[in-house]
Design a protein around this nucleic acid. Structure first.
Lengths: 336, 336
DNA sequence: TATTAACACGAAACCGTTTTCGTAGTTTTA
DNA sequence: TAAAACTACGAAAACGGTTTCGTGTTAATA
């Protein structure tokens, strides 16, 4: 800009205004300046603009894992919508570690971003320490949590109807004459797993089936114990299994087949997430689609809405919890 | 900072220096300032710092797709290394579209980032228009390309030994007494597919097998034509197939099995990428591991090296092409 | 013709930090 | 005791823009 101003013998203010097509500036001057800018391929420095108007048009996304189908679909939804609104996305991966989550948030909360979208790390949920989130809120930085959230922090949230959908799924399995329905879930107790377990339980009880802890298999996501799975299928005599994620479903279905059970005749399988594995497994896995794209888009919409409302000084301190409707996609692992 | 200065009745300069532990400032003043800063939880504004020293500690990553195992592993490698060096990562997805790639690059090349890591969109490769990349280079912004690159742009590159590894794979298949080896590749002609085809061809010719165009099946990645695959297996009588990606491998292996062929007895399968599907397929797919994590880390290392060399005014205008060694992971789809 | 309004532009402050340079006040040296 | 050298700090410019306000010209109005 300085160069343009010097070259055209006008002031920097004039150049700035001319480039912004301000009414103040005369036709000819505007044209000259704009032509010159095109010629020298002038691009305004975003950093300077950010410094001036105190917002960056960047949003920070913190997720536990990026090599994970569900999170990537959410991310895609966020990125798409954010881009369409002229925002960029900075991603940090917490690796399910509390410390990394805290460090990443602090790294970004110093002016680099206008708001956060995040899904909590497992370790954070276990620990139950959410002071970093509360600090963010105190600093007035907008925050939207999705999927793995907590009731302890006041902020906008985007989740799926976990309880209801797993209730529906189990009810459907019961209607299909399944009698001993297993649940394969995580070791840790996240909100999400809890809700899915709750729906599972509710469906059993409402249909006069007993809830038996032996039918609940708990696995470690990052270190699945095949031996444990084998034991489960050998002893529990299940005829249907609901898995809280795709990886568990693949391991379980694979093991069941190895043990000689046929799917879906002997055992039906349903898994959460509807990732890429579900489509290609043998048989294809009936799955609960979580609509990650839509979750991401919704989260980004809420966040950007908050950011821009804040810019306009509208201080609406009210929080939404948007519930995305999960849907069951029937495939070969349950058809009988 | 202003607040601290006012409160402690010193100048802003003093506060700044005290916080940076400058020698210039007296013990007691430093301590007072630092204590005050802790107390009020002062965090320096990154944007202002960026504006001042003309670098942002952000790196821009542009990839064709994020819901894609290989790219996510590369991203994980980038993010991990970048974070360890105090850099953040801004991701944009080109969706394999030339326009989006250009727009994203322009969005970021206005001061938001210190350098780019990118893998070219299919459309860009088809079009052969790389002016946006050249512009970036002319602006002096460091650029590292990985996986999908082009010889037409001078920049650092990180690729795998595509030709060699596919030569090795096919040679191995031949040693395993496979006689009619098919290749399943993309419709478009990216550098990567070409190299893989080259290695395939070379192995055949060196072993006195003829290169037959009929044995090459070309599919559209985003719209796989099952009919075409079925036709291929019915007519070509192949006993081994090399697929340039996992999705093709899954479709092909699935179709072959549906048609009554058994794997690996009748037909052996090998796929590139070694993503999550390979591990869980039936049988598990023998795959070429591309070591995305390492590619990402290497790309980030090179980029950050360039960025920091530039900051130190060392202007090394020499470009590296780092070749990551892919490795074959044998699984059930080839063991006989 | 004098007054006012409209127009086009420039000066300067500002965003939050770093950094260079200048300068009081104090201590050391000659 | 005067000159030199430190010490500890502040003023101000700079990064690259935006924006408010003021002002000199010209055109419209009374």
């Amino acid at each position: 800009m300085k160069d343009i101003a010097r070259e055209l013998e006008v002031s920097i203010s004039t150049v700035s205004k001319a480039l912004k097509n301000s009414e103040e500036i005369g036709r000819d001057t505007k044209e000259k300046v704009q032509a010159f800018a095109k010629l020298y391929n002038y691009k305004p420095n975003n950093i300077a603009i950010s410094l001036k108007n105190k917002h960056t048009r960047n949003i920070g996304v913190i997720i536990p894992d990026i090599v994970h189908h569900f999170f990537t679909t959410v991310f895609r939804g966020i990125e798409k919508y954010a881009n369409s609104r002229g925002y960029n996305v900075i991603v940090c991966v917490s690796d399910d570690s509390f410390n990394k989550e805290v460090i990443n948030m602090e790294m970004l909360a110093n002016g680099s971003i206008d708001g956060f979208i995040l899904s909590l790390a497992d370790e954070t949920l276990e620990k139950g320490d959410f002071t970093h989130l509360k600090q963010i809120r105190e600093q007035g930085i907008p925050l939207v949590c999705f999927d793995r959230t907590t009731a302890e922090v006041e902020c906008d949230k985007v989740i799926i109807n976990d309880t209801d959908i797993s209730y529906e799924v189990v009810t459907k399995l019961i209607k299909d004459k399944r009698k001993r329905i297993g649940l394969v879930t995580n070791i840790g107790f996240g909100d999400v797993s809890n809700k899915r377990a709750k729906g599972y339980k509710k469906a059993l009880l409402e249909n006069n089936l007993i809830y038996d802890e032996n039918l609940v298999l708990r696995l470690a996501y990052h270190d699945v114990n095949e031996q444990q799975i084998s034991e489960f299928f050998k002893t529990q005599n299940v005829d249907a299994v609901l898995c809280v994620n795709e990886i568990f479903a693949m391991h379980c279905m694979g093991m069941a087949q190895t043990l000689g059970f046929s799917v879906p005749e002997d055992i039906a399988f349903v898994g959460f997430s509807d990732g890429i594995l579900s489509k290609f497994s043998k048989p294809p896995l009936t799955a609960v689609a979580q609509h990650g794209d839509q979750m991401g888009q919704t989260a980004a919409e809420i966040l950007i809405g908050k950011i821009e409302a804040e810019m306009d000084e509208e201080d609406i301190e009210t929080y939404r919890t948007e519930i995305i409707q999960a849907t069951l996609i029937e495939r070969g692992s349950t058809r009988n």
